[in-house]
Every structure is written in structure tokens, then in C-alpha cells.
Simulated assay, not measured.
Amino acid sequence: MKIGLYFGSFNPIHVGHLIIANYIAEYSDLDQIWFVVTPHNPFKKKSSLLDNYQRLEMVYLATKDYTRLKPSDIEFNLPQPNYTVNTLAHLQEKHPEKEFSLIMGEDNLKSFHKWKNYQVILENHHIYVYPRVSDNKVETQFNNHEKIHRVNAPIIQLSSTFIRQAIKDGKNIQPMLPKNVWEYLDKMNFYKKP
């Protein structure tokens, strides 16, 4: 089984995340997409970041009706700070029958050469890249790489940062979130002014 790993803080998960993940599930050779919720780095103070399990709950709510989209808390129990190469090694050890690939935006591909042991990742895993609006150039070594697959997913210009700010400003952003995620956020009073 081929699994695409979509890493993020998902603070909160929004329809843009679902559109991209579902597009890749439908238009690539991946069988499932796992939303890997990245834990709060204990060494960084980030008051706008919700608790790990609250963000995981939102991912669960957003994906529960999609058979090919799954939440993952795999990084919650790994040593912090954690690196993608370690998560991949841990998953491969835990699930030797599965083949893991990375899903990333084009903006992340531009800085991929700075990731810890990026060569090891490329040797052992495929990378599926979705388009993002940005200016910087991708390193030429990644342009025609056999392990890097460009996916012509829709360009989504919606961010969790924008959603958090809009909620704080009292804006109605319901259409930007899965219905049950919106209901959970609203009930819990997340991101509203203190």
C-alpha cells in the first residue's frame, strides 16, 4: 500500500488542505493520504498553536467521511525537535509492508536541500509536489528528479494563519472549514479574542 504523508500543524485544518489531499489521492498512484499533525515544539513559545490533541481531533473530524484520508499522530511520541527523516524511518520500521511518500508544496521543495539528510529521504521515498504561488526558484537538482512528482492540483491560496486572524476579527469564515471542524472550533471558542 502506498501512503502519502501530508505534514502540517493543521491549526486549523481547512478546505484547502482537503482539496489538495483529495486531489492527490484521486489523481496519483497513492492509496491513502495521512495528515501527520506536527506536535508543538516544546522549545518554541507559540500561543496561537492549539494543543496537539485538539488539532488531531479537528483532522479526525475533517477526514472521517473520506476513506482515503486519515489523521496521524505518529510524531507525538517521537523525540523533539523531530526531523522528517526520523519520522520516515520510524514509520518504515513500524509498517514495513507500506511504502511512504512525502507530499509538499512547491515552496517547501525550494528549501528541501536544507533539510536534515534530504539525500536519504530522496533515496528511499518519492515526493509529490503540489503548486504554490511563490517567487523563488527550485534547486535545479530537483527539476527532473525521478523521485519527485509534480501534481497539477488546484492552487489554493488559503492559510490557517488567515483563518485564525479572521476568527479573531469576528469574520464569518464557515465556508473555509469543513462543517464539523467549524462546529468544533465554535463550540470550543478557539482563536477568538481572549
Rank of each mutant, 00 (worst) to 15 (best):
I3T: 15
L5C: 13
L5V: 12
F7A: 08
N11R: 01
P12K: 03
V15Q: 10
H17W: 08
L18I: 14
I20P: 02
N22Q: 13
Y23M: 09
Y23C: 07
E26I: 05
Y27T: 12
S28I: 04
Q32Y: 11
I33L: 04
W34H: 13
V36D: 02
V36N: 01
V37L: 03
H40K: 15
N41D: 12
K44D: 10
S48A: 14
L49Y: 06
L50D: 02
N52I: 07
Y53T: 11
Y53C: 10
Y60D: 04
L61F: 09
A62K: 06
K64W: 08
D65R: 07
Y66P: 00
L69P: 00
K70V: 13
P71N: 03
S72I: 08
F76S: 09
L78C: 05
P81D: 04
N82T: 15
T87Q: 03
A89L: 13
H95W: 12
K98M: 07
S101N: 14
L102D: 05
M104T: 05
G105I: 01
G105K: 03
G105N: 09
L109G: 01
L109K: 00
K110L: 03
F112Y: 06
W115N: 07
K116A: 09
K116F: 11
Y118L: 01
Q119L: 10
Q119I: 00
I121M: 09
N124P: 04
N124T: 05
H126E: 08
H126V: 01
I127V: 15
Y128H: 04
Y128N: 00
R132F: 10
S134P: 03
S134K: 09
K137M: 14
E139R: 12
E139D: 15
T140I: 14
Q141W: 15
H145E: 10
E146S: 13
K147F: 08
K147I: 07
H149M: 06
V151W: 04
A153N: 02
A153E: 00
I156Y: 06
Q157W: 02
Q157C: 09
S160L: 02
T161V: 09
F162P: 01
F162A: 15
F162K: 11
I163R: 02
R164C: 04
A166Y: 02
A166H: 01
I167C: 04
I167G: 00
K168H: 15
D169A: 15
I173Y: 07
I173W: 04
I173L: 09
P175R: 08
M176K: 11
M176W: 14
L177V: 12
P178M: 03
K179Y: 09
V181K: 00
V181N: 00
W182M: 05
E183Q: 14
E183P: 06
L185I: 15
D186F: 11
K187N: 00
N189F: 04
Y191K: 05
